[in-house]
Design a protein around this nucleic acid. Sequence first.
DNA 1: ACGTATGTTATCCT
DNA 2: TAGGATAACATACG
Length: 245
Amino acid sequence: MPEGPSIVILTELIENLHLHKPEIIEVSGNVTTIDQDRLLHQKIQEFRSFGKRFLICFKDFTLQIHFMLFGTYLINDTKKTPLKLGLTLKKDQLNFYTCKVDLLEGKADSLYDWSIDIMGDEWDSKKAIKKLKELPDSYICDLLLDQHIFSGVGNIIKNEVLYRSRIHPLSKIKDLPLAKIKELVAEARHYSFDFLKWKKEGTLSKHWEVYNQKVCPKNHPIAKKEIGKTHRQTYYCPACQKKYN
DNA sequence: ACGTATGTTATCCT
DNA sequence: TAGGATAACATACG
């Protein structure tokens, strides 16, 4: 569920219900981080995604849902897991489980820097490149996961993008030629949309070239290590991916 | 059946 | 005190 493209899918699913600024008739769930009464009888203005966050937008505040690692949702269905937040509309019900819910004052437009949303129309690759160059000593595997640079990129996207760009995860920004940085940033955006397409088709895992794989497409053995500052599981091909230093 | 994990953050260490 | 390690969340998947 958690990476950016999956949140886009959720947003599209709800948009396809063709709700028209629906009123919240009932609020349920065990969420404690927000005042549930604040939502009652409010009209939802729109649904949006920002990075890994799902946004339910109201006139002057924004409900932000982050699914973390285990979060799930059901539309017009329920399950046994304790309900974190349920929103009953006139005809539909939106149920969120195992997620982090926050109520932020203000409109979504002004709450986030939309130019860093990897799936967004306003994505600004030049800005990402600029931010990367400001962190010369960081490993590229950590920077791809930096939500202040690549909002919405997660561990799967990280691994696949590094393979596509043929960059070893422990390369540092200062050692990468500018052309390579540009390629990487472009690939981060491009693969995110491939992820979206394949996830919709149900073929995402079939297209993994390194993530969860034993060998790369050229049949070289894949290395699997927890590396970088973030210690996230990293899959890479030592033969195909060049270490810049 | 069990180990692992698409993520983040608070808290406890050193 | 800065930074690192750890736990917590609760489920699905192979």
